[in-house]
Design a protein around this nucleic acid. Sequence first.
DNA 1: GCCGTAACGGTTGAT
DNA 2: ACATCAACCGTTACG
Length: 375
Amino acid sequence: MNGITIPSISCSRSSMTNIYDPYAATFEEGQGRINQLGGVFINGRPLPSYLRMRIIDMAIQGIRPCTISRQLRVSHGCVSKILSRYAETGSIESGSPNTVSKFKILPANIEQKVNEYKTIYSNNPIFVGEICERLIRDGVCTQSSLPSVNVLTRMLRGNQDDQSSIENKKNTNKTRRYRTSFNQDQVQRLEHTFQETYYPDVRVRKNLSSCIGVSEARIQIWFSNRRARSRKIASAHQQPPLATSTSSLEISSRPIAQSTINIPGSSMPLSGLHFNPNYLSSNANLSKVTTDPTFQPLNEFNNVLMNANNPTDLFLNQQSSRYPPHTNNYEYFYRSTATFPYLSSNISEPIFSPQTSSSSSFYIPNMLDAHSIYL
DNA sequence: GCCGTAACGGTTGAT
DNA sequence: ACATCAACCGTTACG
């Protein structure tokens, strides 16, 4: 973080209510792994928001990346990436800011209107400027809420662009594939619907579409992929796949075990902080902020602060009703020790001591935890 | 020992 | 439904 000024923040998870969390969900599905530092991670999935915030927060306090890495048990490469990203873009969230913030989540009503215009003008070319004009005239957007030119250009090109891009790729600059990034609130609602039915009908999809601002087509794709994922998980666990098309998933009320961490000198009251997968990356408001194309770096944390009420809120609603009984050793491990990303409960010493800023003195590898998984 | 980063394997939206 | 591609993830190892 050479010469980089980072705005000061105060990190809190107080606003992270017990909502659906994709990270926790994949964790539940047994996709967690142990890194060299003894921390748990899910390969391919981003770190939860609160951890990312914690990394930034610690860097602001002047704690070195290597220390952050060891203390949070996140690889130094990851810490480096997150700090670099934040320094360059001001975003603490995952996802490429260039593609994500500009392209993702075009409101369904705008997408629908643009498609209408395309149909109307199918014989004559229509330009982005005209579309902007019409969107405002038709009352779909205001000047300030207009989607970016990039989004509109992409929509205008549509499939034609996709087909030609295959050839263009070889000769010209590689065109990037558009990929929707659903925010937490959207995924939560999608998941909730998925719990009710694996095959939502048109009415449900349209209702969902207007509710979360994602086009029906995207919703259809999401359910298709979600079913595929469900089948994959079922086969991995050798459980019967989606047997009934509209059945609800069974959820038990088994609570999970908790562990604690004590980090002296921390800006947030981490003493006694409990880990619960339900808390991982659950700040819906944060997602809204960071997916906003008009995002300003400082506001990202301000919004978090606005939602931070009382540190004690962190420990409310910790009983999870979403965990079925663990079915294998790995599940037993992470549910009983719940080490991610901190210490397991069988280690009483704090891993970080501000009095000893020379790093290696407080690092206690916890590979026993990792080892026990693979026994 | 610390740090930046290429390579890697994984997840997941799109086709 | 399935296979595949592509974007992006965090970890790892190397310089």
